[in-house]
Simulated assay, not measured.
Amino acid sequence: MRFETLSVFPEVFAPYLDASIMGRAQRQGILEFEAYDLRDWTHDRHRTVDDAPFGGGQGMLMKPGPIFEAVRDISGRGGGRPHVVFFSPCGTRYDEGVAERLSHLDRVLLVCGRYEGMDERAYTLADETLSLGDYVLTGGELAALVVIDSVVRLLPGALGDDMSARDESFSDGLLEYAQYTRPADYDGLRVPEVLLSGDHERVREWRRQSAIRRTAAWRPDLLEGAGLTPQEWELARSVIEERRGGVDHGEE
């Protein structure tokens, strides 16, 4: 899969994407990445990419010209036209389902805004516009890194174990179950006995219930789409009621 970014700060991507899992994915040919500098498509000696907004107001807006030229030029550079993604508070909320969908594409171009945002006409270039959440960042570079990381880890071979990404939070509509490692007893806090039993079926059942408990306690909004059985719904409702009563529901 090929990811490309268009930004006024292309140098911020390499330190993260060259390390750890993302770096290994590139070395193995699972991920191709290129960062483009938007200023390469300007035509004045100051390489200007922003200007004051019509109608007044604080801050500066990114000009449409360099963005249009850059996206059109990059799109024509071979490898098939990229799926063009912009970022905006007006965009679709980014979640694991969107990451999964993007992971099936061959080429994605992420356009990163800065300053007070972009001239509205630039958004006509987008195949889709995404929002990471109800907060504001100083630029789209962090959003782009989040998308790249969350998508690449879904690609076959990226994690070294193709099942790893399918057994985590949101993969089945639930938060991930609680996990523990050695020692079995730390400062009086013990690992649930079932995890020490060696009984794989009991462990599987415990993990499913743990995921339901954690989701009901922390993200009950996810339960509707999790495909729970009537018995699992009963468990979830009991956790929600206990939380409303002020009970701290730990793992059993």
Rank of each mutant, 00 (worst) to 15 (best):
E141M: 02
A144G: 07
F13L: 08
V98F: 09
V239C: 13
M163W: 13
P53V: 03
T138W: 15
L142V: 12
E11S: 10
E251H: 12
G245M: 14
F3V: 00
M62Q: 03
M163D: 14
P183E: 04
I21P: 11
T138G: 15
R114A: 09
A226D: 13
L175E: 06
L38V: 04
S171Y: 00
P192D: 09
A52N: 15
G76L: 08
R237N: 14
S75Y: 02
C112R: 11
D248I: 13
E69Q: 13
S238T: 02
S7E: 01
Q26V: 14
K63R: 14
L145G: 02
G29K: 08
V84T: 11
E241A: 12
T92M: 03
I21C: 02
T124H: 15
Y123C: 04
G133T: 06
T48Y: 12
P82A: 09
R81A: 13
G117V: 15
D199Q: 08
Q26S: 10
G78N: 09
G57N: 03
R202H: 09
A226V: 06
P64A: 10
R72L: 12
E232V: 01
D37V: 12
M118R: 07
V49L: 05
A217T: 04
A165S: 12
R101H: 07
H43N: 08
M22Y: 09
D106K: 04
L145A: 10
G23H: 11
R2Y: 06
G188D: 07
R24H: 08
P220M: 00
Y16V: 14
S150N: 12
L195K: 05
G91A: 04
D162I: 01
H43Q: 10
L195Y: 07
R72F: 13
R166S: 05
R45I: 06
S103E: 03
R93Y: 00
M60N: 03
E205M: 13
A143T: 00
D127M: 02
E242D: 15
A178E: 10
E193S: 13
G250N: 08
D161H: 14
L17Y: 04
F86G: 09
A70F: 03
G160L: 06
P89K: 01
L142T: 11
P53T: 03
